[in-house]
Amino acid sequence: MISYELTLPYSLAPGWLAPYVEGLQKGRAMGRSCTKCGTVSFPPQRRCQCGNPDAKWVRLSGKASIELRTDGSDGAFGLVQFEGAANRAVTRLEGFSPDQSTGQLIVPPTDVPALVLAPSKPRSTS
């Protein structure tokens, strides 16, 4: 066997997603609002479902409700609906008990611009 180690130190340019990426790093949900029909997307869609590619960036509350969730050795994740967005998002769930279904976007624990949700209400300590 040939042992060969490759490291790939990427510098990823965020391009049109720059406001989204910068927002996430501050725990802010930056969505796109279509200039024609007003539909807001978060995560941002480059082209609105109406077909219009033009949009302006808007800040959402970052509150989200969990529609579906999965738990296991790969972690806890949900398909969630952010307040004010027409689409849904897959987010990591941090510290949710099974009965908690609403959360808030938080500053990701690492430098990576990740969608991470924490419970809206503190967990019961009982």
């Binding site: 579906l68 296991g72 994740f77 897959v90």
Partner: peptide, 24 residues
């Protein structure tokens, strides 16, 4: 890669969420 990937969701996670929607 920019949303699901950065969030750390694995293939199994995404398939699980999709199946849950289907099963429901």
């Amino acid at each position: 890669a920019w949303t699901d990937g950065m969030t750390g969701a694995t293939a199994t996670v995404l398939y699980a969420l999709s199946y849950r929607a289907f099963a429901a």
